[in-house]
Each structure stands twice: as structure tokens, then as C-alpha cells.
Amino acid sequence: MSNMIKKADAFEIVNHWTTAISFFLLVVSGFGFLFHIGQVGSVFGGFSQMRVIHNYAGLVFAASLLLSVFSYLGEALIFSGEDVIWLIKGGGYLSKTGKVPPQGKLNAGQKGFYLLLLLAGIVISASGLTIWLMPGIRKWLLLSHLLHNISFDLLLIAVTGHIYLATLANPGTFRIMIYGTVPLEWARKRHAKWVQKMGF
């Protein structure tokens, strides 16, 4: 396995799955609430129980989101000119032959996605907590309800894209979240600067 490079440690993998599963539960139950889907409610054992699960899943989501900071935030906050070019070129996804400048451990899109996820995640968690724990002040309740739903829509779309990009759009990527490693070639192609930095 000498041609493999470690991209994610165990902590990151576990935390990512925590985020993903809680997010999945939140989205499904959220859809149940939004569109009054009885079957979804039934799966959760009724709407009251679904609310409990939604709330606690939200806590887990928030916690894992905060923990993700250790894995990604440092990287995500460093932007360079190459990131701009990457963004202008649409990450090379606009055509089969799209070229982008070499990227670090996270490419500009990933940085952007992470920052969006973090921001929207904080907003959705905070507003969710407000609705859950402090519904007494109507103004806050209404503001929270609004923000919760705006961030929900954003996250929903962004995460859908994230899943696509991490699976179908980039075969071989998904294994990071299982083994934590990727083939060197895969990494060179996508994160050349990082590979270089790592001394390969």
C-alpha cells in the first residue's frame, strides 16, 4: 500500500459519520415536520418521539460540527490566489477536461463548503436550540424559525452537492470516510500542493 496516502484520521472519520448520520436523521424528520409526512412520523414512532429524536440528533449534529473545527477550520481559513482561480474555473467540474491549479489538503470548494456548513450549522443549531429550549419569547421564536429554515434549505442543497462530489463525481473519494486513505495518484490529481507538502 505504499501508493496510499492518509487523508483522514480516525477521529475525523468517526466525527464525519456522526455528523452525517445525525444530519440524515434531521433531514428526514425535518421533511416529516415540514410536509406532515405521516409515514416518516411512523418510522420514528410518532411525531412526538420524532421531535425528541430531532432535537437530540440536533445536539449530536451541533457537537460533531464543533468538533469538526479541529479537523478542517485551520485549513479552510487559508485562502490564496489559486483558490480564486479554482473557483473561477468551477473546480474543473464544468467540462471533462477542466484544469485547476494545484490545491492543498482542501480545495477552494471544500473550504467554501466547510465554512458554509459551519456557519449554517451553527445557525441551524442555535435556532433549533432556541425553539426547543426558549420558545417563550415570540420574537426569538419567529426569528429562529426563519433562520432554522433558511439554513436548512442551504444545507440541504449544499450537502446534496457534497455527497455527489464525494461519491459519484469523484470515484475513490468515498473510501476516505472508511479507511482514511486515498491512492497517491488520486491525491496528486486533486491536492497536489498537499501531497507535495507531505513529502511525496
Binding site: 440541504l156 455527489y164 459519484l168 486533486r190
Partner: peptide, 24 residues
């Protein structure tokens, strides 16, 4: 939420068909 999810999934599929994945 409904249409956004749908659109995101549709766009992904469209991209997959039209542009295709980045293969190693």
C-alpha cells in the same frame, strides 16, 4: 426545501451524465 433538494439531485445527475466523474 422540496424543490431545492430535487434540483440539487437533478443537477448532480445531469453533471454525471453530461460531464461525468473525475476518474483517476
Amino acid at each position: 426545501a422540496y424543490w431545492g433538494l430535487g434540483a440539487a439531485v437533478a443537477a448532480s445527475l445531469l453533471h454525471y451524465v453530461a460531464v461525468g466523474p473525475k476518474r483517476d
